[in-house]
Structure formats: structure tokens, C-alpha cells
Amino acid sequence: MEHEVILAATITLLILVMIIIFLFGIFQTRKNQYIQAEKHFEEEIAKSQMEIQEQALKNIGWELHDNIGQLLSIVRMQLNILHAKLQDDHKSEAADISELVGDCLKEIRLLSKTLNSEVIREIGLVRSIELELERFNKLNFLKATLNIHGNERPVKDKDEIIIFRILQEFFANVIKHSKARSLVVDLEYQSQTLVISAEDDGIGFNHSDVTKGSGLMNMESRAELIGADYAIHSAPEKGVKLLLKYNLKET
């Protein structure tokens, strides 16, 4: 009788353990499904936000190129007409103003290109970066340099735009906050990876002082969308370095 009680208790315990394991398995599966669904939902939100931002930038680019650019062209034309009517002692001043308006027109057209994702797709990542750095050099913001190592390889259109926007965000922070004198960008094409680094020699920052409005979170979330490894290093008076590693194998 005692053996039967022990056997029954053992069987009952085994059944309970199996039920617990089964329920735990169901719970773990549901948990993983929930995490995946949540991750997918967050990715979709991030993609939607990015698409909205891209459309806004495209619209701004069109406005700059078509409307503001056209107005400046008219202003320059009117200045040239006025130049012919002025006395000789005022002609040089009018010519200087006309040249300044021409420089503004070139700058706006250059800026409008880097805001339009369709233009970025057409000219490619490397040329887009070159245009951005050329603009900084022309405006004497700082000395900007681009170095390319290895043989250039294609990047997916959408990923190409995201990489460029990450760099644009970094460049904007450099111009606005770093007080840097130089900016160096390196693109290293390895067999399966594109390694991108961008580094300034500015005042740097303390990571504990970084706020959500700094743009760093935006860069990181964009990097996650394309599965790129993202890192940013800085310390006060040490400058800032951005490092991106993008998988070329899947392009």
C-alpha cells in the first residue's frame, strides 16, 4: 500500500513537472512572439518616420531649387541690368553684390541636391558625401577631407540614403557644436563590409550630458534599420568619432 502511494505521488509529481514545463514553453514562445511583434512594430514606426522625413527633405529641396533658386536668378538678372545703368564708381559694388548672389545660388542648388533622396540615389553615396564636404570647404566652415580605401562597391538604394542621412546628422552636429577646424571621413571597402568613420578635432562632449535632441539617438536608430554596427566616441576637448560598419554581403 505504501509503495502504491509513493508511486502515485511520483507519477503526480512528474505530471505536474511536465505541465509546468509545457506551460513554460508556451509562455516562452508567446513572449518571443510578443518581442518580435513589438520589434517589428517599432521598426515599422521608425521606417514610417524616416519616410516622412525623407519626403519633407525632398519638398524642401524642391522649394530651394525651384522657388528660392528662381527668385535669386531673377535678382541677379536685375542686378546685371542695373549694373549697365550705374555710374562707373558704383559698378564695382553692384558687380560684387551680383557675384555674392551667384554664390548663394550655387550653394542653394548644391544643398537642394543633398536633401533630395532621388538625387542621392542617382549620384551615389560617395558623390553625395563629396558634395556635402565640398560645400563645407567652399563656405570655410572647416577643412573637410574624404578618403576612400579599397574598390568602391554598390550599396542598396534605401540603405545608401540612410547611411548618408546618418553622416549628414553627424556633419550638422560638427558644424553647430564642435568648433572643429577639420573633419575627416574615411570609407573603407572591405571584402564583406563597408567601414565608415567620420572624425572631427573639435571640443567633443561628455556622454552623460547628451540629450535626446542631440541627434545621436536618431543616428543610432537609423543604423539599426539597416543592421549596421554603430559607435560614437568622444570626450571633452578630444573631438568626436563616428564609426559605422555596414554589411556589403547582402547588397
Rank of each mutant, 00 (worst) to 15 (best):
E2I: 11
E4L: 13
A8T: 10
A8L: 13
T10N: 08
T10F: 12
T12N: 08
L13G: 06
L14Q: 05
M18E: 09
I19H: 05
F22L: 09
G25I: 04
G25R: 14
F27Q: 06
Q28T: 11
T29Q: 05
T29G: 05
K31Y: 12
N32W: 10
Q33E: 15
Q33M: 13
E42L: 15
E42G: 01
E43N: 15
E43P: 04
I45W: 00
A46Q: 14
K47W: 08
E54V: 00
Q55F: 14
N67I: 13
Q70N: 13
I74A: 11
Q78I: 02
I81H: 05
L82C: 04
H83S: 08
K85L: 11
D88V: 13
D88N: 07
D88G: 07
K91A: 06
S92T: 10
S92W: 06
D96H: 07
L100C: 01
G102R: 08
D103H: 11
D103F: 13
C104F: 15
L105Q: 11
L110N: 14
L111R: 13
L111I: 15
K113D: 14
E118A: 11
R121L: 09
I123S: 00
I129R: 00
E130H: 04
E130R: 08
E132K: 06
L133G: 01
L133Q: 00
E134P: 07
N137D: 07
N137Q: 10
N137C: 10
N140V: 07
K143D: 00
K143W: 00
L146D: 03
N151M: 06
N151E: 15
D157Q: 09
D157H: 04
D159L: 02
E160T: 10
I162D: 02
R165Q: 10
R165V: 01
I166A: 02
L167R: 04
Q168E: 00
F170Y: 15
F170L: 02
F171K: 12
A172F: 03
V174H: 02
S178F: 05
S178Y: 07
S178W: 07
S178D: 12
V185F: 07
L187H: 03
L187G: 01
E188M: 11
Y189N: 01
Y189I: 03
S191R: 11
Q192L: 06
Q192Y: 07
I196E: 00
I196Y: 02
S197C: 04
E199N: 08
E199F: 03
I203R: 13
I203Y: 02
F205S: 02
N206E: 14
D209C: 05
V210N: 07
K212V: 02
S214F: 02
S214V: 02
M219F: 03
S221Q: 12
R222K: 15
A223E: 00
G227A: 05
Y230S: 01
A231N: 14
H233Y: 11
G239A: 05
L242K: 06
L244T: 04
K245T: 09
Y246T: 03
N247H: 11
L248Q: 05
E250K: 13
E250H: 12
E250S: 12
